[in-house]
Amino acid sequence: MKILIPLKQVPDSTVRVKVAPDGTSVVTEGITWSISPYDEYAIEMALERKDADPSTVVAVVTVGPERSRDALRQALAMGCDEASLVRAEGAAPLAVARALAKVVAEAKPDLVLCGKQASDDDQGFVGPALAELLGWPHVATITKVVPAEGAVELWREVEGGHEVWKAPLPALATVHKSEKEPRYPSLPGIMKAKKKDIPERPLDALGVDVAAPTWTVVSMEPPPARGGGKILRDGDAKQIAERLATALRDEAKVL
């Protein structure tokens, strides 16, 4: 089985995001980048298949700027077999999906696993859009994949249990979580990944227009700074409770 994982490089979750002076983007200077967490789960899920069946081939691809090469290296270090880069600066989600559709057509994977959403813009767009462009079955937010004769069982967590969906191959699923935490790369894995060739091509080589229907960011604002808490001290329990209720009603407006 060949599994392809389109991944996205995003600001690491430990980065404190700041709005850039232009008011329409975030500061990317000097920050740490990493693979979007749901994409990491997708990689782990695919690698668990590979652990179970060594003939499985796991490939990763990303549509992004030069720096996203590091994310591909990380995926290779974790144990993925192949990686390729489609170079694009600021490609819109639909353009990304179109580019990925071309990549899938060439690579002919049996299964495409996407993170259910990227942790930076949280749109959850590319996976379903890619399935639509390919005309493939799509199952969202899966937690487990089990191969079945010519098909796959895709497990979804629901309240109090699981749903098991069966899809013919090829298919696309978006990943909510893997059974295990994404693996920490071994050092030989890191070293091997450093030497591996990552082929790249520009977006237009795939015949995709960067500026495909998209949106314009009008403005970005950081969330308002949290004010300090208030401690009610004076008075007995009853008085304090009264003042608390008043404050919750009049100031916080939650009652």
Partner: peptide, 22 residues
């Protein structure tokens, strides 16, 4: 265990990822 197998306990792996990134 850690460097060859990548099999440190998951919480330890989290700590290492955090050191690496943050």
């Amino acid at each position: 265990l850690t460097l060859m197998e990548g099999s440190a306990p998951p919480e330890a792996q989290r700590a290492m990822t955090n050191i690496e990134r943050a």
